[in-house]
Amino acid sequence: MARLFALLAFLLLLGSCSAHGPSSQLLNVSYDPTRELFRDIDAAFARDWREKTGKAMTVGMSHGGSGKQARSVAEGLPADVVTLALAYDVDMLADRGLVSKDWQKRFPYNASPYTSTIVFVVRKGNPKQIHDWPDLIRPGVSVITPNPRTSGGARWNFLAAWGYARRLPGGSDESARDYMAQLFRHVPVLDTGARGATNTFAQRGIGDVLIAWESEALLARKSIGDDKIQIVIPSVSILAEPPVAVVDANVDIHGTRKAAEAYLAFLYSPEGQEIGASHFYRPRLPEVAARHKGEFPDVNTFTIADIAGNWKAAQKKFFADGGLFDQVGPGRGDKP
């Protein structure tokens, strides 16, 4: 009982102080699939920080859907850094004055220390012979992808498919729209998050192909077993660039700016990049990338700038209320 009360007092204290956590602590607000990655990064960074400054540093983690996490930070979650799935969510924080407007220039490579791409996960032996985007809309193929309106990761899936269709020789907005409409007719389940979709595909045995981030696909293959699923790289895909940023408004209150910047810079260090690669994110540093060439096959990629300009434009055109996803998404009355 005494322990319970001690804990109670302690937690209330923590609760009341959480808005200005001690400066030997950072809070990294991240999105769902990065738990395993940051568990290793945080430990390595703490060691690195102690070697350099002689001080202890612990990094607290919060994980959830990218959009929900950004919203929580806007509503007062005392994040020192955010590491999210798409730049749109960081832009929202910049619009509210929490992150500086030029956040994408604060760190190299558009403030995106590692990349990924969109690939297909199929069942062992690839029974439906799925090799590229056109195979997804063949009769009898059922496709699993989460809802792009609730999942940041799924927006990359959507844009990858759109980019493929739009950039075909002779492709137009019209033809790409047709492709998307056909694609979503093959989608029987729209999970709200990327992990939910993977679980639907792998645990429940729904669908012939799962559209997923490469990092997620590789992790799923490791966790679920390569005797059950295998990965197919399409001929062309999108370069997914998950962004990182210091939450300026918060680090100035917490007095953690130096540590927060060092933490994000650590992601770009050879050690940080190695850890990223071991968690299936494609490294940016050429020397690290060269070491992992075998694990990450070359993919012909385009960027979001190539197909939509920027995230705000993409959000408006594709994912807003009444946007393209609403127009061509599943549930248009025609059965899959």
Binding site: L11, L12, L14, G15, S16, C17, S18, A19, H20, S72, A74, E75, G76, L77, P78
Partner: peptide, 26 residues
């Protein structure tokens, strides 16, 4: 969240006093 979040009715007052309600035990 609309009451105690940073943009909520009582959010700014709480933040000024370093009191965490949302995203904390209370």
């Amino acid at each position: 969240v609309l009451l105690f979040g940073a943009q909520g009715w009582f959010g700014p007052w709480l933040i000024e006093r370093n009191l965490g309600v949302i995203f904390a035990v209370p």
